[in-house]
């Protein structure tokens, strides 16, 4: 029992990220409404970001901003701070995500104007005409 408990404690973050990832992927593939597809895409992307940020966590570590001792010397114990590199990557990736979201929504508005609908099967019918 304890084994299992430790196992869950040690990995639950990765699991949650992967579950969210596949929920998002499901939305992107199966949903018929294009807006829902975009929402699926947002969930899918953030799940990956969650996964990568999880890498940066260290037990007993604080935020990666250096603290100073009273005599103004920085405390440089690397184990005391979370890993900053994943944070940097994810900052960039969040920005990429919002950029893609903006473009997707713009295309969605245009699709609505051209085809009069954002349901995938109706668009395909409209294109066949």
């Amino acid at each position: 029992m304890d084994e299992l408990f430790y196992f869950i404690i040690a990995k639950y973050n990765y699991w949650a990220a992967l579950v969210l990832l596949f929920i998002g992927l499901f939305g992107m593939i199966v949903k018929n409404n294009l807006m829902k597809k975009i929402i699926g895409m947002v969930i899918f992307q953030t799940a990956i970001l969650l996964f990568i940020v999880s890498i940066g966590v260290k037990r007993g570590a604080t935020v990666p901003i250096l603290q100073f001792s009273p005599d103004k010397q920085p405390l440089l114990d690397a184990t005391a701070y979370a890993n900053p590199l994943p944070h940097v990557l994810i900052l960039t990736a969040i920005v990429v995500g919002v950029a893609v979201l903006g473009v997707a929504l713009a295309l969605l508005q245009k699709i609505q104007r051209v085809h009069g609908t954002i349901e995938e099967d109706e668009i395909l019918e409209d294109m066949r005409k």
Partner: peptide, 13 residues
């Protein structure tokens, strides 16, 4: 998770 910069960005974006 101590990723304050990331959380800040996600809150805003």
């Amino acid at each position: 998770m101590r990723a304050v910069d990331v959380a800040f960005t996600e809150a805003a974006v």
